[in-house]
Nucleic acid binder design. Structure first.
Lengths: 327, 327
DNA sequence: TTGAAAGCGGTACCAT
DNA sequence: ATGGTACCGCTTTCAA
C-alpha cells in the first residue's frame, strides 16, 4: 500500500499538499491538485485510516453490543443502526454478550481500546458505575438501566396491559403469562403490566406466571406443562414473540385450537409473527425506529450536537392477528 | 485516558520499559515491573490500540459482509464467526450489502482503509478482479465465486436433488420449485438440482419454476398464483426456508392441507423451521459450522499458517418434519 | 536491565 | 499556494 509520502515524492510536492488535496481543505493550486490526484490514482493510494484515527482521536466506528444477534429482534435493530450510521460514514463493530456481565465488560474494554467513537448497547446486567466510567458516548436500548444514561426503550408495562386487556376483551377468562428472564428489566415490566390487570382477579394464582426465558423452546415446555395442569386457561400473554410461538407449538401438540380455545399474544413484533399459523397477535415495537433513534442520538452525542431528549420511550402497537381473532 | 508516557513518567522509567512490561517481552526487573504495573493501575492505563495498530499493521479486526443481517441465515453465521474470532482476540465489523455491488465495493474499500486483518464475505455480485485487488486475506461463504478465492459452501445441487427425491419418495407427482434471485449462485444451483430430477419428466413445464426472491412475501404471492393455476401441484421445493414458509402461508390461505395435499420442503435449516405448523422439512446447512470453518480458515490465512484446504463444501442434511410427513 | 530515538502514516500549525 | 515539521501513542532496534 502506497503512503502519502510516496505520493508526495512522486508528485514532487510535500506531504502537506497531498494531505490538503486529500481532505480538500486549505489552498492548493488547480495544477498541483490535478497532478497529486493523478499520482494518487497511479499509485492506487488509499489513506490509512488507522494513522488518521491516531491523530484525530476518532475512528468513525461505533460499537453495538447485543445479547445475541441470533435473537430475531436484534438483527432488525442492528440493521437500522447500520443504515443510519453508515450513512454518516460510521462503521459498526458487533458484539454478543449473552447477557453475561463479564462479556459485556470485556467488550466495553475492547471497544474503549479500539477507540470507537461511541457505543450502543442492549443490556442491563452491568453495574451502572462501569458504564459511567466510560468516557465515551453511550446509548442504551431495549432496557433502561439508569436515568443518567441516554436510553431508547418502549412502554413495556403499558403495552403488556394492552395485551392482557385485549385478551380480556375477546372473552378470555383465565389468562396466564409466560415470563422472560428474571434479570431482564423489560421482562419484569411486561410481567408487571400483566399483574396490573389480572393480579387481583379472584381466579388469579401465581402458578399462572411461568418462566420461558425469552426462548421458543423453554416457553414451549413451560406452556405444555401449564396447559396440562390448567386446562381452564384460555388466554396466554407471552413476554415476547419467540415465546409466543412456543405456546403455539404447545397448543398444536395438545390439540388445543387457537384462537378459539386458547388465544395467544406476544410482544415485540418480529417478522416471524406473520409466518406462524395462525398469525401471531403482538404488541409491536417500532424496532427499526428504535435502532434509528438510538443511532441518531449516539451520533448527536458524538458530534456534541444539542440533544433535545436523552430518554425516549416509544409506544407499542397492538397488532391483532389470527391468534386472538375470535369469530 | 492516560498514555504510556504518563505512566512512564509517574513510574520514573522510560516508555520503552512500560512497553516491555505491557507486552511482557524483553528483560525487565521484577521490582520495576511491579512499580510499572502499579502505576498503570493507579492511572487506569489502557493501551491505545489505534497507535499499536499503526505500528504493527494489524488491527485484530475482521470485516464480515453479508447481504442482509435481517435474513435469519446470517445472524447464525455471524454468531459463529464472532464466537471463533473473538476467542482469538479479534473483533468483527459488520456490513450489509443488500447484494448490491456498489455497496460491497464500498465496504471493501472502507475495510481496507481501516486496515482490517481479513474479510469474510457472502456475495457473488462482485467481479472477481476487485476481490483479487485486495491484498488482504478473504474468505467467501455461502456462494462460490472463483476457484482462486478461499471458499466455504454447501452442496447446493446435491441437496436440492435430495429434496426433490424426497418429495417424489413420499408420492408427489407434480413438483414445483420456488426459486431464489437470478443473480445468486446458490439459488441457481438449487434450481439446477431440481431440474436434474424433474426437468425431463413428461409433466414438467417451465411454469413450475417461479421466482420467490428468497423472501417470504414474494414466495407467498408466487405460490398463491402458482397453486391457483396449477391445482395439480402436490409438492413444492422452495429454494430456502423463508420462501417455504411463504408457501405454507399460501396453502393455509387456499385451504390446501399440508402435507397431504401439498408437501413442502425448504433449504437452509434456519431455526424458524421448527416454529411453523406443521414444522418445515428442509435441507439443513450446518450454518454454525460454516461460520466456524470460515472464521478458522480466515484466521489461518491471516496468521499465515499452513492451509490444508481452501475450498470446503459441506454436505446438507435432509431433515424430515411435518410438512412432508405423510401418513 | 534500561533508555533514547526513529519510525508507523497521517494532520495541521507556522513559515515562507 | 506550498513546504517543513512537530506530534498522535506505541513498538522496537541500538547503545549504554
Amino acid at each position: 500500500m502506497a503512503t502519502m509520502r510516496e505520493v508526495a515524492k512522486k508528485a514532487g510536492v510535500s506531504v502537506a499538499t497531498v494531505s490538503r488535496v486529500l481532505n480538500s481543505n486549505g489552498y492548493v493550486n488547480d495544477e498541483t491538485r490535478k497532478k497529486v490526484l493523478e499520482t494518487m490514482d497511479a499509485l492506487k493510494y488509499k489513506p490509512n485510516n488507522v494513522a488518521r484515527s491516531l491523530f484525530k482521536k476518532q475512528t468513525k466506528t461505533i460499537g453495538l453490543i447485543v445479547p445475541d444477534i441470533t435473537n430475531p429482534f436484534f438483527p432488525q435493530l442492528a440493521r437500522a443502526v447500520e443504515d443510519v450510521t453508515n450513512e454518516k460514514g460510521y462503521t459498526i463493530i458487533l458484539g454478543n454478550s449473552d447477557e453475561k456481565p463479564e462479556k459485556e465488560q470485556r467488550y466495553l474494554d475492547i471497544l474503549e481500546q479500539k477507540y470507537v467513537d461511541g457505543i450502543i448497547m442492549a443490556t442491563n446486567t452491568l453495574p451502572i458505575e462501569h458504564i459511567k466510567l466510560l468516557d465515551k458516548p453511550i446509548v442504551v436500548v431495549d432496557r433502561a438501566i439508569h436515568a443518567d444514561v441516554p436510553t431508547i426503550v418502549v412502554q413495556n408495562r403499558k403495552g403488556a396491559k394492552a395485551a392482557v386487556n385485549h385478551l380480556k376483551g375477546i372473552g378470555c377468562q383465565r389468562i396466564a403469562h409466560i415470563k422472560g428472564p428474571e434479570h431482564v428489566d423489560n421482562a419484569n415490566e411486561r410481567c408487571q403490566g400483566y399483574l396490573d390487570i389480572v393480579g387481583t382477579e379472584p381466579w388469579f394464582t401465581p402458578e399462572f406466571v411461568v418462566d420461558g426465558n425469552y426462548t421458543t423452546k423453554e416457553s414451549y415446555h413451560a406452556a405444555v406443562k401449564l396447559l396440562r395442569n390448567h386446562p381452564e386457561i384460555d388466554g396466554i400473554f407471552a413476554g415476547n414473540d419467540l415465546m409466543a410461538t412456543g405456546v403455539l407449538k404447545a397448543a398444536h401438540e395438545l390439540g388445543i385450537s387457537i384462537p378459539d380455545e386458547l388465544a395467544v399474544i406476544g410482544f415485540d413484533g418480529i417478522d416471524m409473527c406473520e409466518t406462524t399459523h395462525p398469525e401471531l397477535s403482538t404488541l409491536a415495537q417500532p424496532i427499526y425506529q428504535i435502532g434509528e433513534a438510538a443511532a441518531e442520538l449516539l451520533i448527536d452525542l458524538i458530534e456534541k450536537k444539542q440533544i433535545s431528549e436523552s430518554f425516549k420511550e416509544y409506544p407499542v402497537d397492538l397488532i391483532i392477528r389470527g391468534s386472538t381473532k375470535r369469530t
